[in-house]
Amino acid sequence: MRDVRQEICGSRRWNTPGPHSRASLERRRARLRRALAGAAVYVVLAAIAIVMAGPFAWMLMSSFKPNQELFAYPPVWIPTKITFEHFVNAFRYTNFARYFLNSAVVSVTATLLNLFFCSLAGYSFARLDFPGKSLIFFAVLATMMIPVYVTLIPLFILVRRFPLAGGNNLSGQNGTGLINTYWGLILPYIVSVFGVFLTRQFFTSIPTEINDAARVDGASEFTIYSKIYLPLSRPVLATLAIFSFTGVWDDFLWPLVITNSEHMRTVQLGLQIFRSQFLVDWGPLMAATLVVTLPVLLIFIFNQRHFVKGVVTTGLKG
């Protein structure tokens, strides 16, 4: 608790013991107030955490519970006996290692491509002036307003008719195009429009004086983008990375229609195995979901450290 208080107070100087003067007394009072406020924040955080993570915690517990305790009444929260049978069942027959590899290849490739192309276009929309800019921007944004189910078939046909791929000739005939390939899987995720919009929004909050100064120094636009804007935008790039990865990793519909072979399937298709028409195999479903969620969580934890920079010095309180 003491460590926590030190953290909340933010700085060592509050902890320096002073003489029992009036000023020091007041300082101690302030310290107490802050400590109490800090404790209150933790209580609030914990309460929210219970609501937000409750279902996940239940999932975590469930994946280690023996079947008869899964839905016992009254509910058993902490398993009396920890079992790994659900993990064994989930991964014994299905080729989850392969699904993981496929999902990882697609998600990482898409994330890297997104980081570059989205921020590049976002920079252009935010900082470069050219005729037709607003029109192009809104036209691009508008593509997100069409439900995916009506463009699914045209997109599928496009992928199948992709020239010179999968046995196709130049006019896209004779073969199967990019169907059942990595490039076919990745294609719809290469540049996400929301990423372009996101980076544009954040770049607009960077003062334009920086650009003027750099241009005077003879820096090229690409240098300004890559050497000034990108380093200044680590939080938003982290956000984009998190979202791209999550979005691709969690997508179900596109992998469903574009892959046929077992060796091309992704983790989300793999999860479907535990849920059929009549019964849901809860134990293995929870165990497998847990494992499938881990990479996305790791990406989040790895990237969110960019949100902490500067907070100590800003001391921003809600």
Partner: peptide, 20 residues
Amino acid sequence: RATRGIVIFRTLFYLPVVTS
């Protein structure tokens, strides 16, 4: 804020987004 354990809370709040 930069208090101890904040990473854990952020992650807990983000959990619903990532769960299938």
